[in-house]
């Protein structure tokens, strides 16, 4: 059964149809979420969010749109939201101190992540984890999903110039972090400015 058959059924309250939709698309959603989060705990959180949002807006899905591109948009926004939520915490006593405690220890990367890439991979992973959410999403979308800047801009509702600047900022940051960590060749030769 195709997505366009399943969506109206799920929107009409058929749990099996919704489950079929989830089962079909969860690998893509999870993959993007994991690329963004770098660990299972947050990836699962994000993926949960995505499908709950899908559930909530099934009846507003435009049938001329591709489900996957609609999903992409939801995943990207869920990634950004997730980060924002982690940062904001949001309760009363001892908020700041506690917020820091709860948010500081990012889950250490899973075995999959640890296995990859040696020095550069590790430094890169750490630094991607430190990118601001918006930059991280844009960077991941560009690199892993191969989306064009116009597509990213459209999906996130941003001006293309903004996406360009954010991507530039992300790459700039990664380059410098890797240079500082001494894993890029130019770190050795060009420390004093190459030109």
């Amino acid at each position: 059964m195709s997505d366009s058959d399943l969506i109206p059924r799920a929107a009409g309250g058929d749990p099996a149809a919704f489950q079929a939709l989830v089962e079909r698309h969860r690998p893509m959603v999870y993959r993007v979420a994991y690329q963004f989060a770098g660990n299972h705990h947050d990836a699962e959180d994000i993926a949960q969010d995505v499908f709950l949002k899908v559930f909530r807006s099934l009846d507003r899905f435009r049938y001329d749109a591709q489900l996957t591109s609609w999903l992409y948009r939801i995943v990207m926004n869920a990634c950004i939201d997730h980060r924002r939520r982690q940062k904001s915490g949001g309760w009363v006593p001892g908020e700041e101190a506690e917020g820091t405690l709860l948010n500081m220890p990012e889950e250490s990367p899973g075995p999959e992540a640890r296995a990859y890439g040696g020095e550069i991979g590790q430094a890169l992973e750490a630094e991607i984890g430190r990118l601001p959410a918006g930059q991280r999403v844009i960077f991941i979308m560009r690199h892993h999903q191969g989306l064009k800047l116009t597509e990213i801009a459209e999906a996130l509702g941003l001006a293309e110039g903004t996406v360009k600047r954010q991507l530039h900022a992300a790459v700039h940051r990664l380059r410098h972090a890797l240079t500082r960590a001494n894993v890029l060749a130019s770190a050795n030769g060009a420390a004093g400015g190459g030109a």
């Binding site: 969860r26 999870y30 994991y34 299972h40 992540a113 296995a115 890169l124 892993h144």
Partner: peptide, 20 residues
């Protein structure tokens, strides 16, 4: 050149498409 190295390292980032 740096960007190329970063991209190459990223290409090795694991694809994780399901919970453990």
């Amino acid at each position: 050149h740096d960007i190329e190295i970063i991209a190459a390292a990223l290409a090795e980032r694991p694809e994780v498409a399901s919970p453990p």
